[in-house]
Design a protein around this nucleic acid. Sequence first.
DNA 1: ACCTGAACACCGTTCAAGT
DNA 2: ACCTGAACACCGTTCAAGT
Lengths: 164, 164
Amino acid sequence: VLASGGPDALTMRALAQRLGVAPNALYSHVDSKTALIDEILDDLLAEIEAAAALHALMAATHRVLLAHPHLVPLYLARQGARGPHAQRLGELMLTWLEQYGLTGSQAVEARRVLIVYTLGFAAFATRPLFQTDTQPQRPAGDLVATFDTGLRWLLDGISSREPS
Amino acid sequence: VLASGGPDALTMRALAQRLGVAPNALYSHVDSKTALIDEILDDLLAEIEAAAALHALMAATHRVLLAHPHLVPLYLARQGARGPHAQRLGELMLTWLEQYGLTGSQAVEARRVLIVYTLGFAAFATRPLFQTDTQPQRPAGDLVATFDTGLRWLLDGISSREPS
DNA sequence: ACCTGAACACCGTTCAAGT
DNA sequence: ACCTGAACACCGTTCAAGT
């Protein structure tokens, strides 16, 4: 639906037209545009299946996000997702972090770091960060590999953390 | 100006009203709303002064972003900044990364990781990621400290990296 | 150079009414 | 339950015209 024109093209009126219906007809099915987007975003997180390790879980999340690049800006605009699947994913992460010895607020903080990193990286995966004419736009290395490298840095740091 | 009503309230018409002027009068001074925002975003980066270490540079960036929380969503929407000050900051980071032994595309990738982390963290610093009723909303630890911890993880990872 | 009035092509959303 | 027509209060932007 929204894949054709990017996230900016996702307008209630355009969606209604695509469905061959009047714009306000949508409001019989959804409370508001915000609620609609929230449902879409949470539905995507449902695709993330439980993994065998924390690294694998975050990699799976990253993969799902990259598979729907036009949704990523919406996560940024909403600053995350708060639906039931987001909840489930969050709890899952806490469970894994416990295996690293992190509990309570420390685990919550580590989770925040991981989410920020994963979502942020997905956001910048498509678009270049700097417009340097002198440099090749897209760095040689695979972006997925770059994500993986940074993720390993974080997980190594988390697992070798000292009490602050 | 925009501090009163958040980033959504930054509309050309509202800005014009604040200036006591007709909405279209703004277009004598700025090409478009996009161009205006780009200028605002790049101006903020000018406040970041060169630091004594990479960690300090990123911390300074984080500090400046937190000082203007209503601008952070605009960076996310624009996916970074591309003005001259953003360029300068980007080059500065590359210089520091060279001291870690990273050059070329490896340095560019590490820079990407650091920017993603810093900007992403600033974005999520204000708003909570999960709406869990059972848990205290705001984790006990200082958010700046959390940022610092994660940043250290990344920098440790960068400096101890092996050729992949 | 800087402003205005008027207009265009959009938005999300509501309300009353129909089936 | 689901749709429609009409309307409201907004947007960014352009154009022609004024000083």
